[in-house]
Design a binder for these strands. Sequence first.
RNA 1: GGGCAAGUGCUGGAAUGGCAUACAGGCAAGUCUCAAAAACUUGUGGCAGUCACCUGCCGUGAGGGUUCGACUCCCUCCUUGCCCACCA
Length: 927
Amino acid sequence: MSQYIPKTIEEPLVESWEKESSYKAKDSSSSKKLYVLPMFPYPSGAGLHVGHVRNYTGTDVLARFFRMNGYNVLHPIGWDAFGLPAENAAVKAKKNPMDMVPDNIKTFQRQMKRLGFSYDWSREFSTSDPEYYKWTQWLFIQFFKLGMLYKKEMPVYYCEFCKTGLAEEEVLPNGTHERCGKPIVRKTLPQWVFNITAYADRLLDDLEGLDWPHGILEMQKNWIGKSEGAEVRFKLVSGPASEQPQHKNSPCRATCQQHEIKVFTTRPDTLFGVTAVVLAPEHELVKKILKNHIKISINYYKDIQKYVEQAGKKLDLQRTDLNKEKTGVPTGLFAVNPVNGEKVPVWVADYVLGYYGYGAVMLVPAHDDRDFAFAKKYGLKIKYVISKNTTLLRPAERDYGGQVEQSKNGSKPYTGYGYMIPLKEVETFFEDSRFFKNPVSSQDFHAMVVKKLEGLHIGKRQAQYKLRDWIFSRQRYWGEPIPMVHCEKCGWSSIPEDQLPLELPYIKSYEPPKTGESPLSQVKSFVKTTCPNCGGEARRETDTMPNWAGSCWYFLAFSFWDKEKANSKSQIPRFAKATPGEPSPKKIPNPNNQNSNLFGIWNLEFGASIKKWLPVDWYVGGAEHAVLHLLYSRFWVKMLYDLKLVSFKEPFLRLRNQGMVLGPDHQKMSKSLGNVINPDDVVNEFGADTIRIYEMFMAPYNQEIAWSTHALQGGYRFLKRVWNLYEKGIENSDLRIKNPETKELNLKLNKTIKKVTKDIEELKFNTAIAAMMEFINEWEKQIQNSKFKIQNYNSKGKTKKPDNNGTIQQLNNSFSTYHAKRFLQILAPFAPFITEEIWKNTFKEKASIHLSRWPQVEEHALMDPEVVIPIQVNGKVRTVVKIKHADMTKESVLEAALKDEKIQKYVKGKSCKIHFVPGRIMNLIVT
RNA sequence: GGGCAAGUGCUGGAAUGGCAUACAGGCAAGUCUCAAAAACUUGUGGCAGUCACCUGCCGUGAGGGUUCGACUCCCUCCUUGCCCACCA
């Protein structure tokens, strides 16, 4: 008998599987395709994390399972290599990321192979391969031509000490730079921006029908953040004569009249409660005031100037700090509430966000918490127009509305819906003196107001989104160069396709220069170029793309990628020279335009593969990508759909998340906490099968788990027991397994096959493994029982002692090698090494177990001869009876139940109602 | 403040209307051993009853409801975790 030593059996198998390329997806196969995709990793220097192992074991189980079920499975892997983390790590190590990343990738490859992940390695690529990012750049150009990319001054985080722009994740919550600890400011730089907001409605609507976790769908909806309401226009005027006598003939009279302020509100029903209009510091009108296009009193002007300047310096983080007291300054201007003609003051305050809605709000202190706080602080009027219930709406209060409410409830705003307080001005607005004959609910009023506003052309129904346009440039080195050229005469043009890929130059110093520009701006040979349009001198864009770019379409690339082909440039089709005169921007290209060569390659060479494999059937990864990566990818696919480069609208039909793996101390693993588990160590000590079984077993797949070295042992013990059962059985070099004579075990086996099959499809890996453990327990128990029987038999000394072989044969009548193999097959996706080893060595199978057919359930074996029926009295289980399927009638179960003394005790001499569910339960209700 | 997920033994968890605690870990006792480890066997929700055998009651965050029957469905609340957040 040999011992189970994972290392010695696993390592040779890694090699043999690779040699046989067992897991290549077949482009030509006619069997049903299945695309199983784990989110590809960023190859960090730290190597594979146990969290990766959980993610990738999950998809590996799926891939192996579906392969055994006859599917043509695509299960690829690649590397998300561009981006800030890699660049920062390289800076730290004083290396070029271009040198470092390949080393990291090698580590990942080694670890993944050792863990037995069944990838199709022939489709592997890194987003930083020029052959790959050639297409990323080409797609950028297509999106530019589609009119979805524009260049605009946008605020970025900027560290004045390091003189560099920063990504949001480099800004600490206290507003300082994580590297130098100095405060960070906002700076506006010209940026490439994706007009993703144009797709907001489609991104929202198409979520319908996706098989994604409910929570993730909600997060996406929240992120897009559609709110429906109304836009209302307020005209700007000079103030009431009483307040501003000196302005009677002021310049404002002339200039103000031409301006109006658009506000967005989700509560048009509160329009009569407006007591001010508040502008964001970034609002156009504020800019006009500061440029003196709108003249206001000099005192106001100075305050506004100061206030706006300060607000500009603040970070979003500081501005949006909820605990912060609200601040603002008056403008001295007034706006007319279009529903009642009231003149309300115009303020500037930074709690109003420049980027949401119209950057202006109507202030309704009585019915909004923030407005209330602001009004209280600056002594603005608070006017109640909605009451929580109808009891307050007595006729005597009709014309007092606001004041009555205010005195009773003036200490806080009422933000819910309710009933409109009867006001004369409302009756006037609706030209109906009997408007409040019956109480008017504010929801109804909402609709009425919007309709009226539309009729009078002073407002309309409107939806707003939280989603903001997507800043797509980074002033960094380690990313795809943006394939754009700027010419003084012609503006921005994309570079000709025959110049793709626009390669990232290998440079020694790539740390951000002190100018706030990209490191590439320092590379003269890169910057200097000619204009593709006029041939004159021009400058290349020196910003690079963010790390999202490569991951926005990698799932498409796997369908057609050929690593070998990509590696040998000679085989790559060369591109024809650029046709003179690129199509001008903002013009949708004709998909049939054969002038564009890459269009041709995409459609002719890639098109069929994309069509064959996409969309992704199973997409599995961490929930931390709930919004950004998944939203961006969906967005790209929608643009590609519009460009007729793909024929589907959603990339990922089914999404699942694996839970995070925490340290043994229940905290996120981190070097500083010293709680990091290195999968290499675990694999070396216990084997790949053990870590796979453990990570699949310990909790539901989508749930967070804390690492437990103890529990890991459980998985190891299980595998050892499996090994011993199969190995011990062939002690005498006989292929028969030591088996008990049992139908019961075969019944259990079939039940187990059924459960494991169902559980894998539902990603309930933990219960699948539990079921297999139960089966092994049962098997061992049966062996114990049969040994016991044999001993008894022998001790009676009736016959001569049967030899070992004889014993096995005698017991082997119903559970045999055939059944033993069936169990091994259902274990195979979880523990690919041990099962393959036994399959080939013990059972002398030539072909891999992983390419064998998944065992089918033998329905006839599943027929339980007897069923256990619990008997309840008044809902409490008092006993159980065993009953044959054939006898499953109310009468026979009752008869059996009444034989039990306990039941008699409860039932005796009492009237009794019987509730019986055949095959499940009987409940006796005694009264 | 908003959204989502979750709350079951000492621990991870199982059971999605029908025997609560499967499976695993831990712990305890035992077998083997000079000893230890490994392995194996047995036990392991709480309380009570002359607690070894047996018996009863209680028990899935709290409280209500629906039902013959609720961890499971409904309502109210509490707690924890995650995501978003001055979004008008």
